[in-house]
């Protein structure tokens, strides 16, 4: 209960001002403004159990951040019900607010001109964390993220990656049961992203914190979340296992062959004939990559090996980015 989330037919509609271009339209809008209704979230339902790590995916403007903000109690839903950690988020009861934390990759709650440690102290007072608990939590998080050298520095003097680490530690100081992460690795370099992911994985293992993550970096999702919820145009169109989603969306494997000789040579006729019947994804010199239905991979291998003089064959799943792109293209069409 304390770390679980239940969302039922959630909807959110905004009113946004509309205006034609030009000064005349600007003046007219002063007298008679016109508005349009934008449905950011139409009908979203799902449940998350305590301790789960779930990826919330969707193209830009699909409604995932709006959903996340309704879960955190920042926005009032237009329709539907939401219950997080046993509370209605919009009531913003102190016990609910103490049980959650939100990290947004493009915003910081560290005080710009104060030291990192000072920002942590303000957080401690606001959340009423006892001195002993604060010391223990800070010690653990500092060690896990190798943060000690950053504590006496002013936030303004930190690099983007250092700020992101401190931001994450700040969000965890009060030991929330549920962590909402909205693009937490935005703008971070590859090694910082890797450290972030391994920290989150280890933190979740140690503390059983529920994590809802949105990210456009698929590596964040694949390394952290077994389950994904895909949202587009404000509705859920997939909720389940990430690998199952890949299997369903892309029921094929990619096979890459490297031939010993040039494919245009007369001795490669059999291979060329075989390849003509396949769905080629990429071809360059002696390398060819093609799609094969999962069930057809093994039966194809024999004829393939006999048809040419192979230097190398590799079989792999399509990259998750391609799977997601296929899904997005499919639902947006």
């Amino acid at each position: 209960m304390e770390g679980s989330i239940h969302v039922d037919s959630l909807g959110k509609t905004y009113q946004i001002p509309l205006r034609e271009p030009g000064i005349a339209a600007a003046l007219a809008s002063l007298i008679r403004p016109t508005y349009a209704e934008v449905t950011a979230v139409r009908d979203v339902s799902f449940a998350v159990q305590s301790g789960e790590m779930v990826g919330l995916l969707g193209p830009n403007g699909s409604g995932k951040t709006t959903t996340l903000k309704m879960l955190a109690g920042l926005l009032y839903p237009t329709s539907g019900k939401v219950e997080v950690a046993g509370s209605v988020p919009q009531q913003r009861k102190p016990e609910f607010l103490r049980s959650i934390s939100l990290v947004m990759g493009n915003k910081t709650q560290l005080t710009w001109d104060n030291t990192v440690h000072d920002s942590f102290l303000i957080h401690k007072e606001i959340y009423g964390v006892s001195q002993g608990a604060f010391r223990t939590r800070l010690g653990e998080l500092t060690e896990m993220l190798d943060l000690a050298a950053l504590l006496p520095k002013q936030t303004r003097n930190l690099s983007l990656g250092e700020r992101a680490k401190c931001q994450l530690v700040l969000a965890l100081l009060h030991n929330p049961r549920i962590l909402f992460l909205d693009e937490p690795t935005l703008g971070l370099d590859v090694s910082m992203q890797i450290r972030f992911r391994s920290f989150l994985k280890e933190y979740n293992r140690r503390h059983g914190t529920t994590v809802i993550l949105t990210s456009h970096y698929m590596a964040d999702i694949t390394s952290l979340c077994r389950r994904v919820i895909l949202i587009n145009k404000g509705t859920v169109f997939y909720d389940g296992d990430l690998s199952e989603m890949a299997r369903r969306t892309a029921p094929f494997k990619l096979v890459r062959i490297t031939n010993q000789g040039d494919l245009s040579g007369p001795e490669q006729t059999h291979l060329r004939e075989l390849l003509e019947r396949l769905h080629i994804v990429e071809q360059e010199q002696r390398n060819v990559t093609f799609r094969v239905e999962r069930s057809q991979v093994v039966p194809l291998l024999g004829p393939l090996l006999n048809a040419g003089s192979m230097a190398d064959v590799s079989i792999f799943d399509p990259p998750i980015e391609a799977v997601i792109d296929t899904l997005y293209q499919g639902v947006m069409a």
Partner: peptide
């Protein structure tokens, strides 16, 4: 303007007081 009010709303202290 900056959207940092999101964080104020998430604090377990009455918003007006904070």
């Amino acid at each position: 303007w900056t959207g940092e009010f999101d964080f104020t709303l998430l604090k377990p202290v009455p918003t007006q007081v904070l």
